[in-house]
Amino acid sequence: MIYKIRIILDAEEDIFRDLEIENSDSLEEFHNALTQAFGFMGNEMASFYTCDQEWNQDEEIALFDMGENGSDVRLMNETVLEDVLSEKSPKMIYVYDFFNMWTFFVELADIVEKEDGRTYPNVLFSFGELPDSPPEKKFESKPSIDFDDSFGSYDDLDFDENWN
């Protein structure tokens, strides 16, 4: 089967790509198609994240395992697209280049039969140009936790500076 997927840059302006890819391809193959479709070199770290219907991030699926002794993180080359993207869970988040945090919303749009003579992955539609730098993220301006900064003086604490 062929997945038709829309990948949208997390930005105010509309920038997206529609791709077709085989549901049996790995997430690494999808990552390669996605980076090419948006014009990235593909040489930066990246991860997919499963998510719920409201785009709340869940499990990470990384390009490489960066743990020293191996870890429990799922890897793109070991994960098949149809195992994480389906009609029941049609959304994922993709982050490319962790220093710049290019963030994309990935959504399964349709599942169709494979067409003879067509090569996959295939860019169906491209809209908008990627900006020179990633869109700024808007974070809360006020922390959600109130800190009690009415603390008077460290002299009031029973603290032994020669403790060791």
Score class of each variant (00 low, 15 high):
16 F>M: 02
149 D>S: 10
38 F>D: 00
114 K>W: 12
41 M>V: 09
126 S>G: 05
104 F>G: 00
144 S>I: 14
50 T>K: 11
20 E>P: 06
129 E>D: 06
163 W>P: 10
20 E>Q: 14
21 I>F: 01
81 L>A: 10
136 E>D: 07
40 F>A: 00
109 A>E: 13
163 W>C: 14
124 L>F: 04
141 S>Y: 13
92 M>I: 03
36 Q>A: 05
54 E>V: 12
93 I>L: 03
5 I>S: 03
1 M>Y: 13
51 C>E: 00
96 Y>T: 01
74 R>K: 09
83 D>I: 10
75 L>C: 05
159 F>E: 02
139 F>H: 06
83 D>Q: 11
133 S>F: 05
70 G>W: 05
111 I>L: 01
75 L>S: 06
36 Q>W: 08
144 S>W: 07
94 Y>K: 05
10 D>K: 08
72 D>I: 08
47 S>Y: 03
63 L>Q: 03
21 I>P: 03
32 N>K: 14
126 S>L: 09
114 K>T: 12
18 D>H: 05
95 V>S: 09
6 R>A: 06
148 D>N: 04
27 L>E: 06
21 I>D: 02
155 D>L: 15
123 V>M: 07
33 A>R: 12
81 L>P: 05
16 F>L: 08
5 I>V: 04
161 E>K: 13
144 S>Q: 08
152 G>C: 09
145 I>C: 06
41 M>I: 14
23 N>V: 15
133 S>P: 00
49 Y>Q: 09
127 F>W: 03
30 F>G: 04
156 D>F: 09
93 I>Q: 07
115 E>G: 02
109 A>T: 07
96 Y>A: 02
104 F>P: 01
145 I>L: 09
135 P>Y: 03
54 E>R: 13
57 Q>M: 03
115 E>Q: 15
14 D>Y: 05
143 P>I: 14
123 V>R: 04
54 E>W: 02
95 V>P: 06
6 R>C: 00
56 N>D: 06
19 L>N: 04
127 F>M: 01
66 M>P: 05
108 L>T: 05
2 I>T: 04
11 A>H: 00
113 E>R: 13
112 V>C: 04
137 K>G: 08
23 N>R: 12
107 E>N: 13
116 D>L: 11
32 N>I: 15
123 V>C: 04
48 F>A: 07
144 S>L: 11
137 K>S: 07
52 D>H: 01
51 C>F: 01
89 S>V: 05
145 I>S: 00
82 E>P: 13
48 F>I: 06
68 E>M: 14
161 E>N: 14
13 E>A: 01
153 S>G: 11
30 F>H: 10
104 F>M: 01
